[in-house]
């Protein structure tokens, strides 16, 4: 058992691109669920729209990368408006079902053979990030004390954490403004807010758009990190893990998603690396009859599912949250 390696890999995962992407997606969900009480189960769809917005604009339509970025954001806004229009007047669980369905629609459509010439089918799209790589200031590997990053990873790492920082700052500023207070009151009691003359529908829509754009930016980060994009990056489980991240860190807290993402990926990665090592080699720690290498890679997802169940039951406020601020009781 090589613990140094496990710790190194896990720290890289906890601060690397996985954590950055999920932190960003969960910050978006925090605006939806944490502050406004909207149950968006289609964050993977927003990520897909953003990521494919960039990738298809550059690869398929030959636009410049810097034009593609606003197109990706615009796509996320349009997606939010389309989803919000029919559902935001309805009860919370309708939004949940519609958003999860819409995310699946996006994933099936971009992965389809019929539209392969635009979205690349199952293989997805590549070669869209040359302009991004071209301005990479790092020309050698960066030593981060506990782990090292190759130049491209370091560039994504830098940009990613700056984006996460800016998003946190934005959420912090917005949520202490009068606008943010209206969102929080919608979460607590929609009728009361309506009786004060606020247009609840409009506020919910604005929150959906804001969180959706943050989700779209998470999709950008997926695309930039892998320098490629495919439909499997945006499966329904991505949304579920983003919820786990959000609830672990603490919903309705500015830094909740960030801490949640770091902890989630550290734990997932420790479990993954531990069981991979425990089942590898000629004389594995765990005999192959009990667990094979393939099964070892599933243990972390079993644990993630179990973790989400236990968290919601025993500590719905997560690490930082306040139990009174979590919208878990609405019907």
């Amino acid at each position: 058992m090589n613990w140094d390696q496990i710790i190194e890999f896990s720290l890289r995962s906890a601060f690397g691109s996985e954590a950055i992407v999920y932190a960003m997606a969960a910050i978006g969900l925090n605006v939806h669920f944490g502050y406004t009480g909207l149950l968006n189960f289609g964050q993977a769809g927003f990520m897909a729209v953003g990521g494919y917005g960039i990738a298809a604009s550059v690869t398929t339509f030959g636009l410049s990368f810097w034009v593609a970025v606003p197109i990706g954001i615009l796509a996320a806004i349009v997606f939010a408006l389309l989803l919000g229009a029919p559902t935001l007047r309805l009860r919370a669980d309708y939004l949940a079902i519609v958003t999860i369905a819409a995310a699946e629609i996006i994933r099936i459509v971009v992965g389809s053979v019929s539209l392969q010439e635009y979205f690349g089918g199952r293989d997805g799209l590549q070669e869209f990030n040359d302009s991004f790589v071209a301005i990479n200031p790092y020309d050698s590997s960066v030593n981060m004390v506990l782990f090292t990053l190759r130049p491209n990873d370091a560039w994504v790492f830098t940009v990613g954490w700056i984006m996460v920082g800016l998003a946190c700052l934005l959420v912090w500023a917005l949520m202490r403004s009068p606008w943010g207070r209206v969102l929080k009151s919608i979460r607590e009691d929609e009728e009361a807010v309506r009786s004060l003359g606020k247009n609840v529908y409009s506020y919910k829509m604005q929150a959906l758009v804001l969180g959706g754009v943050l989700g779209g930016i998470a999709g950008f980060l997926v695309a930039l990190d892998q320098a490629a994009i495919n439909p499997e990056n945006f499966s329904t489980d991505v949304t579920f893990f983003a919820y786990t991240v959000l609830i672990l860190g603490g919903a309705a807290r500015v830094l909740g998603p960030v801490v949640g993402a770091i902890m989630f990926w550290f734990l997932i990665s420790v479990l993954g690396n531990f069981f991979t090592q425990a089942t590898a080699g000629d004389n594995p720690l765990i005999s192959p009859e009990i667990m094979t290498g393939t099964q070892a890679s599933l243990v972390r997802f079993i644990a993630a599912g179990l973790g989400l169940v236990l968290l919601v039951i025993f500590r719905p406020q997560g690490i930082f949250g306040d139990k009174r601020e979590i919208a878990l009781d609405a019907r």
């Binding site: 149950l39 919370a92 669980d93 949940a96 919820y243 609830i247 989400l308 169940v309 919601v312 039951i313 719905p316 919208a327 878990l328 009781d329 609405a330 019907r331």
Partner: peptide, 8 residues
């Protein structure tokens, strides 16, 4: 709550 149970 119902939403808690849904996430569970």
């Amino acid at each position: 709550g119902n939403i808690a149970l849904m996430i569970v």
